[in-house]
C-alpha cells in the first residue's frame, strides 16, 4: 500500500528493483572500512601480545584479540546477510570469557605472576 507523499520526499521511495539503495552502499562502505580497522586492531593487540612485559598483559591481549575476531565475524554476518556464521560470535565470546577466568585463576595460584 502506497500513500501519498509530498513531492520533495518522493525520491525516498524510488529505490526499487535493480537499484542499490544509497543506504546499502553506505553500510557496505562502513563495513569495508571496519574490516580494515579491526584487522589493524588485531595487529595492535598482537604487538602487545608479543612484547607485553608481564603475563597479565599477554592474557589481556589474547582476550582482546578474541573479541576483535568476534567483531570481524559480525561484519561478515552483516555483509552476507546470513545467520550461518553468527553462532561463531557467541562461541568466541564464551571461550574468551572462560579462558580469561582460567588464566586469572592460574595467575592467582601461581602467586608471583610477573
Amino acid at each position: 500500500m502506497m500513500m501519498h507523499l509530498p513531492d520533495h520526499l518522493a525520491p525516498l521511495l524510488v529505490a526499487s528493483e535493480g537499484v542499490t539503495p544509497w543506504t546499502r552502499t553506505m553500510l557496505d562502505m562502513i563495513i569495508t572500512g571496519g574490516i580494515i580497522l579491526m584487522s589493524l586492531g588485531v595487529l595492535l593487540c598482537m604487538i602487545r601480545l608479543l612484547k607485553g612485559p608481564t603475563l597479565v598483559d599477554r592474557g589481556l591481549a589474547a582476550d582482546t584479540i578474541s573479541i576483535q575476531i568476534a567483531g570481524l565475524v559480525l561484519l561478515l554476518t552483516i555483509r552476507l546477510e546470513t545467520l550461518v556464521v553468527f553462532d561463531v560470535v557467541l562461541v568466541v565470546a564464551i571461550l574468551g570469557f572462560v579462558s580469561t577466568l582460567a588464566f586469572a585463576q592460574y595467575l592467582g595460584r601461581k602467586g608471583a605472576a610477573v
Binding site: V56, A93, F97, A104
Partner: peptide, 23 residues
C-alpha cells in the same frame, strides 16, 4: 547480555590477580 555480564567479571579477576602478584 552475556558480554555485559561476563566482561566486567573477567576484567575484575584479571586485575585482582595482577594486584595479588604485586604488579
Amino acid at each position: 547480555v552475556f558480554t555485559f555480564v561476563a566482561s566486567p567479571i573477567g576484567s575484575h579477576l584479571l586485575a585482582k590477580s595482577a594486584h595479588h602478584a604485586k604488579m
